[in-house]
Simulated scan of single mutants.
Amino acid sequence: MHHAFVFNEVAVLVRHWFEIDLGDSHMEHGARVEVRLVSPQPRRGTESAAQVITVDQPVWRADLFDRLDGTPGAFQAAHFHPHFVGVEPCPRHWAEQVKAAPWDWLHTQLSDVADIVSTAGLELNDPITANEQVGAEVNVIVAAAQTRAATQCRSKQQCYAWTRDAQVSVHTMLDTLARPDLLDRDRVSPWVMV
Rank of each mutant, 00 (worst) to 15 (best):
E137R: 15
A114F: 02
G70N: 06
A145C: 08
H83K: 12
T119M: 04
T71Q: 13
Q167D: 14
Q146F: 04
H81V: 13
Q76P: 03
T163V: 05
W60V: 10
S189T: 01
V142G: 06
G73R: 02
V138K: 09
F7L: 09
D66R: 01
V194S: 10
C90K: 01
R148W: 05
H83F: 15
N125T: 13
H171M: 13
D181C: 03
I53E: 14
A31C: 08
W191P: 14
V38K: 03
D126Q: 10
T71H: 08
A149H: 02
G70M: 09
V14H: 00
V188C: 00
V134E: 03
P102G: 02
A136V: 06
S111M: 05
Q167H: 14
F80I: 08
V98T: 14
D181N: 05
A11T: 05
L124H: 10
V59M: 01
R179A: 15
V188L: 01
H3N: 15
Q157G: 04
S25V: 02
S155H: 04
Q41H: 04
W17G: 10
A145Y: 01
V12D: 05
I141C: 13
E19Y: 07
P89C: 09
Q97K: 14
L37R: 15
E137Y: 08
C90D: 14
P180H: 05
I128Y: 10
M173F: 02
T151M: 11
